[in-house]
């Protein structure tokens, strides 16, 4: 039984791939997107239990991914990753329905535990 489905979105391909690989090892059904547009395509195509997205991407930023995920389902948990701890957009993110903002650099072990907790609650 698959513990849940996760979409990882980051324009740093290596980081997105690594996080995906780690979660796949944990048994999750994982999808990867390297930009907001392809992330939104995936979100429209199917349901995810969890969407983890980077904030600063171009041409569209992580907030557009958050909005798309919210629009598709209220049940999807959305997590935002950012290296910019004092980012002004954070408030907008929280208002848009982000469950959690995770500061980069991400500690992988803690990230895995975090996903386990969050998706188990869902």
């Amino acid at each position: 039984m698959v513990p849940g489905s996760v979409l990882i979105v980051d324009d740093n391909r290596d980081l997105a791939d690594n996080l995906g690989e780690v979660l796949e090892d944990e048994g999750y059904d994982c999808a990867i997107a390297y930009d907001a547009i392809s992330a939104i395509d995936r979100i429209r195509a199917r349901h995810f239990d969890l969407v983890v997205t980077d904030l600063r991407m171009s041409p569209l930023d992580g907030l557009t991914v958050v909005h798309a995920a919210r629009l598709r389902s209220q049940e999807t948990i959305v997590v935002l990753m950012t290296a910019f701890a004092g980012d002004v957009q954070l408030e907008a993110a929280m208002a848009a329905g982000v469950a959690e903002v995770v500061a980069k650099p991400i500690d992988t072990l803690r990230f895995v535990e975090f996903v386990r907790d969050r998706v188990a609650q869902a």
Binding site: N12, D14, L15, V22, A83, K104, T108
Partner: peptide, 17 residues
């Protein structure tokens, strides 16, 4: 600093794997 955080994240997660 911000530019370094991403590569450091990749190194850390690769080491984890």
């Amino acid at each position: 600093g911000h530019d370094l955080r991403n590569p450091l994240g990749v190194i850390e997660s690769s080491a984890y794997i």
